[in-house]
């Protein structure tokens, strides 16, 4: 029964949710809505679980003074201070300590992390983008055309860039997306019919 009950739950849920995409009747839509609200509840519990896990992992690092433990202290400090300010002050008010930390600490940190990519991309372009053979040269030339066509200074190349994006690029992406979609359907069917059972902790 330990294995059969979860399989029955997955089968019934999977079939109902798949049917709800094709059957517009209100009864099946109500059942779908019920399952959807469960998904949100489980998601919220997962956030709680993540919070406990993050705290435990970093506390262990601090206690054992493992290399880089100081970063764990900073992580825990950030976690506690955002939680406390979030609970004490209304996050919807435009100016309070929570909003201050969000606007002037979190936001610039995120933006800085993303901006650093520009430096790494420049370095990678210099070191790795080499015309070693015909294929590499094709990629290199295409990349240069797209980069130039993307900015005002290379406006003359914009039509060629648009063609690259809308024809060869689109064909490639469409193939990838179709592959992902078909793979997803196959995996879903395997799970619904109990062929794929890795989610229960065994093959």
């Amino acid at each position: 029964m330990k294995w059969e009950i979860p399989l029955v739950i997955v089968f019934v849920t999977g079939v109902i949710l798949a049917l709800s995409d094709f059957v517009p009747h209100q009864s099946i839509q109500d059942v779908r809505e019920f399952f959807m609200s469960w998904l949100q509840i489980i998601g919220v519990l997962a956030v709680g679980l993540g919070l406990v896990s993050l705290t435990q992992v970093n506390l262990v690092k601090v206690r054992r003074k493992t290399p880089g433990w100081i970063y764990s202290v900073i992580t825990l400090f950030g976690l506690v201070i955002m939680l406390v300010t979030g609970f004490v002050w209304d996050y919807r008010e435009p100016s309070n300590p929570f909003q201050f930390l969000f606007q002037y600490a979190l936001l610039p940190i995120y933006a800085t992390m993303f901006s650093l990519l520009a430096f790494y991309i420049a370095s990678a372009a210099f070191r790795a983008f080499k015309a070693r053979n015909a294929l590499a040269t094709t990629i290199l030339v295409t990349a240069v055309i797209v980069m130039l066509g993307q900015v005002p200074v290379g406006a003359k190349l914009a039509p060629l860039k648009s063609w690259i994006m809308e024809v060869p690029n689109m064909a490639g992406f469409r193939a990838i997306l179709l592959g992902i979609g078909l793979g997803g359907v196959a995996m879903a069917l395997k799970i619904v019919f109990g062929i794929e059972r890795a989610y229960m902790g065994r093959d």
Partner: peptide, 23 residues
């Protein structure tokens, strides 16, 4: 911002060219 992006893209293309000359 597009001025900045224009110059950056030109610079990266210059890096690619110089990197290939060295290669």
């Amino acid at each position: 911002g597009m001025d900045v992006q224009s110059i950056e893209h030109l610079l990266i293309i210059a890096f690619i060219v110089v990197g290939n000359v060295g290669f």
